[in-house]
């Protein structure tokens, strides 16, 4: 649905993105993940045709953004980072204006406005002045605006920024709900958001793509080792040496102790479950086992690993 090839954007003083390429399939939710200033907004602005690229191409549904900008824009619903709201208008008045400039046929405008308001759950505030709405409602009016005309592609720049946890949950559910019929690209710098909503992740850092994959695969590929966390009562040096000697165990670190109980982090070989072996060893040695838990690397760790790797170069 969206093909981005070798996209580069140079500003007067800095290069915002460099040779960015990725594809988004129909019905997919693609997460665009990166720290602030990584080039997420720039990429999205180029896809939506707000801004031309210095180099490279973007095709949406077969149309080139630069050559057929109007055809592309007709297929995209865009929620910029700051929802583009005319604060002095009522919700309905605003959506009517958006419907008109998006070329929704006159006789369908009222129906379309009703549809998007229901979708974004803002029907109850339809006659209110936008300036008087809470931030969460404003954001949802922004989402409703993007949905007008039922475009096949939705580009959402930081759709949950500034919302409270309940509103964040609602917006995420809405986005998941939209997938399937729509192709969604959303950007965020919040990691759980990507894990919870996206089929695929593009991690971008300082204008370059550092990884593209599903959240699960990314975690799996980068993990490199199984980790187990244990809390054991007993002599620390003996425990460390005995556990280290076990088959499948790569390394054992002490991560703290308290009242004679010691906490360990054990790294095992990949795809080998050593938890039952560890438990048996503790019991056989007569130590006390207080906790045993396998630790999965969060996307957060992966993200940090990827984006700090470059710094060491």
């Amino acid at each position: 649905m969206i093909t981005v090839e070798n996209l580069t954007k140079r500003f007067a003083r800095k290069t915002a993105i460099e040779s960015v390429s990725f594809q988004v399939e129909k019905g997919e939710i693609l997460g665009f993940l990166g720290p602030n200033g990584a080039g997420k907004t720039t990429t999205m602005r180029i896809i939506t045709g707000f801004m031309p690229a210095s180099d490279g191409t973007v095709r949406v549904d077969g149309f080139d953004v630069f050559e057929n900008p109007i055809d592309v824009r007709r297929r995209i619903g865009y929620l910029p980072e700051n929802p583009p709201l005319y604060l002095e208008m009522t919700v309905v008045g605003y959506l009517r204006f958006v419907a008109k400039i998006k070329g929704v046929p006159k006789e369908k405008i009222d129906l379309e406005i009703q549809r998007v308001m229901e979708r974004a759950s803002i029907t109850d505030v339809q006659e209110r002045i936008i300036a008087k709405l809470s931030k969460g409602y404003k954001q949802r009016v922004g989402v409703a605006q993007a949905l007008i005309g039922d475009p096949p592609v939705l580009i959402l720049d930081e759709p949950t920024i500034g919302l409270d946890p309940k509103q964040i949950h609602e917006v995420r559910e809405l986005i998941k709900d939209l997938a399937g019929n729509h192709t969604v690209v959303l950007s965020t710098h919040i990691l759980p958001e990507v894990e919870q909503t996206c089929n695929r992740v593009v991690i971008i850092d300082r204008g370059k793509i550092v990884a593209v994959d599903t959240p699960q695969n990314l975690r799996f590929q980068l993990q490199g080792a199984e980790r187990v966390f244990m809390e054991i009562q007993g002599p620390a040096p003996e425990i460390t040496s005995k556990l280290k000697a076990m088959p499948g165990v790569i390394d054992v670190h002490t991560v703290g102790s308290n009242d004679g109980r010691h906490r360990f982090q054990i790294e095992g070989e990949l795809k080998k479950d050593i938890r039952s072996d560890l438990a048996r060893a503790v019991v056989q040695n007569g130590w006390g086992l207080y906790e045993l838990q396998s630790v999965t690397m969060s996307l957060e760790d992966i993200f940090l690993k990827l984006t700090t790797a470059e710094e060491r170069e």
Partner: peptide
């Protein structure tokens, strides 16, 4: 100032 220019310039308008 309000950022609504982004709406106008990404709408199917020349």
């Amino acid at each position: 100032k309000r950022g609504t220019i982004e709406l106008l310039l990404t709408a199917p308008l020349t």
